[in-house]
Design a protein around this nucleic acid. Sequence first.
DNA 1: GCGGATCAC
DNA 2: TATGGTGATCCGC
Length: 618
Amino acid sequence: MATDTPIDEHAVKEHDTLKYSLLGPSLTKSGQDNVDQQKVSEIIYNASKGSKYFNNEESRDKNLTQKIDRILTKKKQLEKLDLASDRRKADDYIAELELTRDLSQWIVHIDCDAFYAAVEELDRPELKDVPFSVGKGVLTTCNYHARKFGCRSGMAGFVAKKLCPQLIQIPLDFDKYTAKAQEVREIIVDYDPRFESASIDEAYLNITEYCQRNEIGPEEAIEQLRREVHEKTKITISAGIAANAKLAKICSNKNKPNGQFRLANDRSEIMAFMRDLPTRKVNGIGRVFERELDAIGVKTCGDIYGYRQFLSKLFGEKAFAFLMSCYLGLGRTTVQPAEEYERKSVGTESTFGDMSDPVELRDKLRATAEELEKDMVRTQFKGRTLCLKVKLHTYEVFTRQVIPPKAVYVADDLYKYSVPMLSKLEQEFPGLRLRLMGLRCTHLVSMKKPDTMAFFGFKKRPNESGEPDSPSSTAKRRADTLEDDDGWEAIPEELLFEDAERQEREDELNELESLSQEIDKRRHHGKEIVPNPKKQENQEEEEWWDCPICSRPQAANEKEFNEHIDLCLSRQTIRDAVQETSDLRSREPTPAPKKVKTSNDRSKGVPGDPKQRRLFFG
DNA sequence: GCGGATCAC
DNA sequence: TATGGTGATCCGC
């Protein structure tokens, strides 16, 4: 650092935080110990400087600095007050948490080392001794040779090339990684049949029972597991063994690659372990929260205790509870198959060259809708809410959502109901120019029949053997029956609308659907109402437009008219009536039975069908 | 409930 | 030449 030039101290600080941020989210990952971070940071900074990406990062960094200033101001105010009751509240909570401590399980987290790179090396042994990355535009992962140069996942390819000019970049082959991951799973299932896939290359196991049954210690068992995986798949894995999932996850990073670490199931050892652990090592504390905590003086999990009286007021109740569990080294001791988690959304998004032509944007939206339909069919869901995501050419991200009159999954519907959101954005940001577009369905309605029907109490006809369905046989069937059988009894009469009423509601549904189409046509392809404000002047003869929904005349102002229509469309009463009708009509009521609640675990893993899980950064 | 922000992988 | 995709959660309004 130049010390002879006088620089505004504040500017230097911002400079540094930005550089730190530009280093990327995987800074704490392994393989970086011998890297000169200062030099790497300088190269990344210079390679990025002036780009739109850089400008956006700079802007985000400034916002965060302001947010931190507000946090510090608030902390100063709090310090003037009597926080005895807050401290007592925290102490009571700690005592309460302590009662939940469970040291009776051996939980293991395993993590394949540089997984994608390792799989590629098996196919192409010549890669073993040279630095290479998987993924071209952006690195999804890279081998340990490349990491020595400062290359890491999430980094732009051209930046990585600056750090390591001889870097070889090879394309992704997701099917290959999935197949290899399956080989690994076939081995670990012997150690815990209910193991939990956390991603394509990570899993949690509870080996308590395995160790008891085989009269083997946890460390020995995991050494054996790792050896077996290596022998049979040629993949090396790292593992952490501890009393709960949070600790196991931290431990698996301790002796990476190809190593393991055990933290004893002992309260004081766990407390000592956490005391010196940097906050960033905990799953759920990222770059932002790390900076916020650092600003108030919390650098390690042990530091949390001394600030317990401030935390809930500064960061909220959830963060308070989470931080307390970090200080104590507590975490979940349950491990369960990923399929038993409830999926909450299905979505797709893609990046492209800057695009601002309204017709092109609509084509892109249509293509996105078609992609989403595929995923909705594959996962067997409809969505009650549809969410449009855009990223401007400046990298700013915006989302907009609507509640269509019925649960949707067909591309035509996805498109139909998302186009108005796009049009609105075009009004909001004249000359809208995008680099990314995405669609996502939430508030999912399952299209899988057996389970949902059982949940609502509809009985299956007696099966062929004549014996009634036991709960266990129902559960057993659930896993693999997706086919559309029609063996359900008629829906009990009392659950249906009266015929006349049902007919009426169906009519309402049909009418509303055709109305929506009409609205869409008139808004975006018709002559009376055009999204392009420039064309508006020519069609100002009419003073009023009739709302196609409520029939009431509205001022002939495009913006207000659209807003009125949105209001009409989203009227709760219509929505509910239509939703109920369409649900009953298709005999798929759903909300699938709530399966698992995610506790105060701040980790954001992606449960769901492991086969479909996409993982990019190993 | 909506939209922005953060996080994991 | 020029910085990802999928999914989850939390917060402020």
